[in-house]
């Protein structure tokens, strides 16, 4: 191990390359130089001060970092920012229109589809991506296709209700509001 480390030290660059890129983040073009080793997630959270995108594991195992890149949901923690040069990125901060919540955001509020709120931005971005993918036809399919977003608080049934509400274009079921 030591020998390998020594070799590495000889060949490894002292600092990672800094590369100019341009990203459209929530509709605003951002030009900047980023270090090659900076993930899209860390760029959003630390550099662009958009911490709505969450770091839950940093290894693609929880989905909290889900954002939409060119309209598709991805894990921003496993994406180097430099590799998304020229892309459009939509984060949770970019979904609402002014003070009007995106229907999925509103549905999460109405259905209490969260508790601590930490997985919530990823859940919402994932749900928006799910709908645009158009592959989920049944409740079981929604459940499977939302399984890349872990919610430790266990809000899953309410998350499904929120998504079904938006898919069906229905208002939240009043029965849900007043159990027993």
């Amino acid at each position: 191990m030591d020998q390998r480390l020594a070799e590495l030290r000889d060949t490894a660059p002292a600092v990672p390359d800094r590369i100019p890129i341009s990203l459209v983040v929530n509709g605003v073009e951002k030009r900047m130089e980023v270090a090659a080793w900076t993930t899209l997630l860390d760029l959003l959270r630390n550099t662009l001060d958009l911490p709505g995108t969450k770091k839950g594991c940093d290894h693609g195992q929880c989905g909290a970092c889900t954002v939409l890149v060119d309209g598709r949901r991805i894990n921003s923690c496993l994406t180097l920012a430099v590799m998304k040069d020229g892309c459009e990125v939509t984060t949770i901060e970019g979904l609402a229109t002014g003070d009007v919540l995106h229907p999925m955001q509103q549905a999460f509020v109405d259905h209490d589809a969260y508790q601590c709120g930490y997985c919530t931005p990823g859940q919402i971005c994932s749900a928006v991506g799910l709908i645009s993918e158009g592959q989920a036809r049944t409740r079981e399919e929604i459940r499977d296709l939302m399984s890349g977003n872990i919610c430790r608080c266990g809000a899953y049934p309410n998350i499904i209700a929120a998504i079904e509400g938006v898919l069906g274009g229905t208002a939240p079921a009043q029965a849900k509001e007043d159990p027993a």
Binding site: P51, G52, I92, D112, Y114, P121, E177, P179
Partner: peptide
Amino acid sequence: PLSRVDGPLKVTGQARYAA
């Protein structure tokens, strides 16, 4: 059965956590 008062902050990414 009131909706969470902090809900809008959570669903818009405005709620800030420790880090």
